[in-house]
Amino acid sequence: MLGRRGALGRGLMTVPAALVYIGLMVVPVGYAVYYSFTEYNGIPTQAPEWVGLENYTRIFTDPTGDMHSSLWVTGVIAVVGAFGVNVIALGLALLLRRTTPFTAFARAVMFYPHVLSALIVGFLWQAILGPQGAVNNLLTGSGRSTLPFLSDPDWALATMIAVIVWAQLGVQLVLYLAGLQAVPADLQEAATLDGAGRVQVFQHVTWPALAPTVTVTIVTSVLSLLKVYEVVLGLTNGGPGDATQTWAYEILAVSFANNKVGLACAQAMLLIVVAGILSFTIIALRRRAEEGAEALS
């Protein structure tokens, strides 16, 4: 049964997936590696010119002083956003963990922003928080001064993180709810009978048992926050100035849009490498906590 024909047939069955995947993901990564060492304006008649590490040194030295702020913005979004999204989602999950028609409704309400495109979420909040948006009109209408949600650099970044948290907390909520179902109920009851308070039960039973879920939620939220682009386009278009320009915005709307394909590819490579290293680091760091969870169940 495991003859040569079987092996050949088996190999052939992987060909369609491999063709599409290699053709449009692996080969482009190869192109990106190659172009990242060249200067190339993307015009087919002009060949890419080999420049060695120039694009990478440009990223690290940032002679025109516009790239490092994007790195900073992306880092802040990834760290603050991941923290905010996970704390709020976990809090909501604890609040909504019992299944009643009311909590089922509330879960759907918390989740709905996720089915909207990030671009549309951006435009929507721009209409609500913009200088002439709904909130500022309400403020002026009641005789108060307006708030610079999107017009002050620091406010704009904070606003953007809040909008991203609003849009993404539903996904993490669903993951935490699934994780909470796996927390052994008898352990929680036993702890309560032994006189443990709510905080103690959470600290010593629920939180350790959630460890595998927490790993998944941190990795998925950080990965999605590192590539934030569409919400920027809708909400601030990178402004004011470059206060909300993310790394993905830098790649697509600055480098690529200005025909700097080589630089765009070097920037893309950096993001892919950082995303990979971060994911594996988080997974490795979480291994200990997860072993604790296994010991519990």
């Binding site: 992987t14 997936a17 995947y21 053709g23 449009l24 993901m25 692996v26 080969v27 482009p28 990564v29 190869g30 192109y31 990106a32 172009y35 993307g42 087919p44 990965l223 590192l226 590539k227 682009y229 993905a248 790649i251 697509l252 690529f256 394909v261 765009a264 590819c265 893309a268 993001l271 892919i272 995303a275 990979g276 994911s279």
Partner: peptide, 28 residues
């Protein structure tokens, strides 16, 4: 190994790899 080769793609953001993918699509 083949599975790992495919799964590695999960860590590559689609919109980031789009720039070089455009050149593949042009060639095709």
């Amino acid at each position: 190994v083949l599975l790992m080769f495919f799964v590695a793609g999960m860590f590559i953001p689609a919109q980031i790899i789009l720039v070089p993918a455009i050149f593949v699509l042009k060639a095709l």
